[in-house]
Computed example of a mutant assay.
Amino acid sequence: MGFGKQAIGRLLHRWSLRRWTRLARAAETADLDKLHQQRLMASQLMTRLSELNFVANSRLALPRVGTNAFVRPGGTLWSWRPRAWRGPLPEMGIAAVGNRASLGDHLTVFHDCDISELTLRQIRNTRTSDMAPYGLRLDVFRFDGSFLSLVLDLPAEAIDGLLKRHIIRLTLNVELEQPLEIFARLNVRHGPNTEQMVQEIRNADGEMVVEFDLAYSDINERRIEAAWLDLIFEGAEMNQITLRDVTLCRYPRAEL
C-alpha cells in the first residue's frame, strides 16, 4: 500500500510539473482572464512551496540524529560519542540536580551541595559548525558545595584490548558563560586498584583536545575491569556550561 501511494504521488508530481511548465511557456500569449487566474493559483502554490523549502532547509542543515561522525586519529581502534550527544534522551532534563543523579545511559552528576541550584538539560545543536546532533547544558546558580563533576562511564568496548601503549583521546566542544577551570580525569580500574590520570583543560572555549598516554600509567593490562571519565568543574557558581560535543577514541601511540 505504501509503495502504491508513493507511485501515485510521483505520477501526480510529474503531471503537475508538466502542467505548470506548459502554462509558463504559454503565458506570453494566454488570455488575460485565464492568466489572472493562473497567477493567483501560482501565487498560492509558491507560498506553500516557500514554507516547505524554509522548513526543509532548516531541518536538513541540522546535524543528523544518531550520527557518530567526527574526526578520528589515524589507526583509531575504538571511538565513541555518548548517547546524550548522539540522540534524544527519554528524560530531557533535571531541575535541582541531586548528587549521583543520572541523565540517560553512562552519565552521572556528582556534587556535595546541601541545597542544589543546578539544572542539567539536553539541547538540540543548531549551529552550522556543530557535528553532534545534541548537546548538554549545565546551569549553576548558587553553589555551596566543594566539588562538581560530570562522570561518563565508558562502555566495555573501550577497555577491550586496552594496553599501556594506547592513548585515550578526549575531544570536547565547550561554551562557558564565564571562564572557569575544567579538569578531565581518566579512571581505569584494574583489580583492587584504580589508576587516575588528570589533565587540565586550559582556557576552555570551543573545541578542546586532551590525550591520556597510558604508557605513563601503572595499569595492569591483564586485570582491567572498567574505565570512566570525570569532567571536574572548579568555581562553577553563577555559570552556564554548554558541552556541544563530547567524543572519545583509542589508538596506539607512535613507536619511539
Rank of each mutant, 00 (worst) to 15 (best):
R121W: 07
L77A: 07
F183G: 09
P252Q: 04
T76V: 09
Y134F: 15
R165Y: 11
L11V: 08
R202P: 02
Q44T: 01
A84Q: 05
V188L: 13
R222M: 10
R59M: 14
P82V: 04
P63H: 05
P82D: 08
I201G: 00
F147L: 08
G9T: 03
D153A: 09
S146C: 06
L186S: 03
R25C: 12
G135I: 02
E221Q: 12
H106R: 15
R81F: 04
E225S: 10
I232F: 04
L12I: 03
G206H: 07
A204M: 02
P155L: 02
M41S: 12
S116N: 03
P179V: 09
S149G: 08
T242A: 11
W15R: 15
E51H: 12
M208N: 10
R59P: 01
H166Y: 00
L120S: 06
I159Q: 01
R19D: 11
T194W: 00
L176Q: 07
S16R: 15
L256G: 09
F141I: 04
L229Y: 05
K5Q: 14
L52N: 13
G206V: 06
A42E: 08
R137L: 13
M197R: 08
V210N: 04
D213C: 02
V188C: 01
L12G: 06
A227F: 03
F141G: 05
R100V: 03
M208L: 08
S43F: 11
R83S: 14
D139W: 06
T76I: 00
H111Q: 00
G75C: 06
G4C: 05
A101P: 06
P179D: 07
D230T: 04
F233G: 03
A30N: 10
I167Y: 02
V188E: 03
L172Y: 08
A156K: 09
L62P: 07
A7M: 11
L136D: 09
A226L: 10
A101D: 11
A227T: 00
L150K: 06
M92W: 13
T247D: 07
N203E: 10
G135P: 06
L89R: 07
L162P: 09
L77G: 04
L248Q: 00
V140E: 05
A26P: 00
R121V: 00
I159A: 00
E28D: 11
N193F: 13
V198F: 06
V198I: 15
R127Q: 14
R22Q: 14
L35Y: 01
S58N: 12
L120G: 02
W85Y: 10
V97I: 02
F143Q: 02
Q6T: 13
E91P: 04
R223F: 11
L248I: 02
S217E: 10
A95Q: 14
G161D: 04
E211N: 09
D144E: 08
D33M: 13
L152N: 08
S116W: 06
A56T: 15
L77Q: 12
A101I: 01
D160N: 13
